[in-house]
Amino acid sequence: MQTSMFVQAFIGGMLIGTGAILLMLFNGRIAGISGITASAFTTRMAEGGWRWAFLTGLIIAPLLTAQAGFTLPEKIPGSLLTLTLAGVLVGAGTRLGSGCTSGHGICGLSRLSFRSLIATFIFMASAVVTVSLVRYVF
């Protein structure tokens, strides 16, 4: 049971890596979801259209995997207030920090970028501390 979860996670991870490297091999772009999302709104369709296409694929993919039994969670946990605060922090933080789990975590670490290594370490540590404070202190 536990082992099959790990195998499934690893295979899913390989697909994430494949999607990311395809975007580099085909489009010459870093697959950083926060950067792609933010820039989709600020660049013209002629140059930035690939961003909307990538995001469209990302959004409709779960509808396809559902056919094979891999579905989205039924519920998103957390109050609307928490989700609002979290959303603003994730949006602002990833813009200020030039990346998120994908851009820094996958692409940046693979590029052996020092900035991405530090950013990944910090946001992981910050997230671990936040979860611990929410669960065990407050």
Binding site: L58, G87, S102, F123
Partner: peptide, 29 residues
């Protein structure tokens, strides 16, 4: 900005369990 941004992103991620990719992938829900 890199350091501060990473700290803020981590707090938001820890509060919700959602980073940008999975957030968007969940939209069709």
């Amino acid at each position: 900005p890199l350091l501060l941004g990473a700290v803020l992103f981590g707090v938001g991620w820890g509060l919700s369990g959602i980073c940008p990719g999975p957030g968007l992938a969940n939209l069709s829900q």
